[in-house]
């Protein structure tokens, strides 16, 4: 069965699991669901403090303070959604290994749930960003590309976590390595800067990072009010579909033996 049909079949279950995930995550915490907005806001604040306040990145490009804040926000929110999905998804199967051993449950949905949770959080904070953008007067028809970008990001993340969550069962060092890689990935993604600001010599570093394309497109759609590179998106989509099918196939091939190793 292709992973798309599987996802469609379980769409209700996935929705319920995502809802459950939020409930579990914020159960007993004082601010509860408010953290979905609070956490990105705090990260954004520290970014602005370091890159805007101390390093004054916006000076060299002639941005105003507000504009730079929106620029960082439009790159940061997809990043947060992605990195949450990546970390949660990779650990998801191991975290629920008892479930796997004692219930007949479609375990392949656990990474999906983590990715969706990340996206839902991202979407909530993005709605807030859109409101601000509306007031700043930079919202336009290019926002129509946004749903497409979210879908691309979802499958891109999913292809990674279906693979990594399996490997994580056997190779427990992975989560340690991954947290380091994530930090590196964060700095080589155009969050506090734009791809155009990168010196020509370091261009390949950015070009090799698939996330930089996604973030650039998000920024085009959200901030610059220009249609993202459609050809680039088409290529990205084709590659993502192939990757997600391979990752799903790998997960399902190992699915039978996973409980023995967990």
């Amino acid at each position: 069965m292709s992973c798309f049909r599987m996802l469609f079949r379980y769409r209700r279950l996935i929705a319920s699991l995502v809802w459950l995930d939020f409930k579990v995550r914020y159960a007993g915490s004082r601010f509860g669901l408010l953290w979905m907005l609070l956490a990105p806001a705090l990260v954004l604040g520290s970014y602005l403090l370091v890159f805007g306040g101390i390093l004054q990145v916006q000076r060299s490009s002639g941005w105003t303070g507000l504009h730079y804040a929106l620029l960082v926000a439009s790159g940061l929110l997809p990043w947060i959604g992605f990195s949450q999905g990546l970390a949660g998804g990779t650990g998801s199967v191991l975290a629920q290994r008892n479930l796997m051993k004692s219930h007949v449950f479609p375990v392949e949905l656990l990474p999906v749930t983590a990715v969706c949770s990340g996206l839902v959080g991202q979407l909530c904070s993005m709605v807030l960003l859109l409101i601000v953008l509306g007031f700043a007067g930079s919202a336009g028809p290019s926002l129509l590309a946004l749903p497409l970008l979210l879908v691309l990001q979802a499958f891109f993340t999913l292809s990674l976590v279906w693979f990594l969550s399996c490997v994580n069962i056997l190779y427990r060092d992975l989560s340690q390595i991954l947290s380091l890689v994530t930090v590196l990935l964060m700095f080589i993604s155009p969050i506090a800067y734009t791809s155009e600001m990168v010196p020509a010599g370091l261009g390949p570093v950015i070009k090799m990072n698939p996330l930089s394309y996604l973030i650039d497109w998000y920024r085009d759609a959200l901030l610059f009010n220009r249609m993202p590179d459609l050809w680039g998106m088409a290529v990205f989509a084709v590659l993502t579909v192939i990757a997600v099918q391979i990752a799903y196939g790998y997960f399902m091939r190992l699915r039978k033996v996973l409980p023995d190793f967990a």
Partner: peptide
């Protein structure tokens, strides 16, 4: 159809 109770309260979330 089968229903199984193999381990005490797996799938319970302590905070819920």
């Amino acid at each position: 159809p089968v229903s199984a109770l193999l381990e005490l309260g797996t799938g319970f979330h302590p905070d819920l």
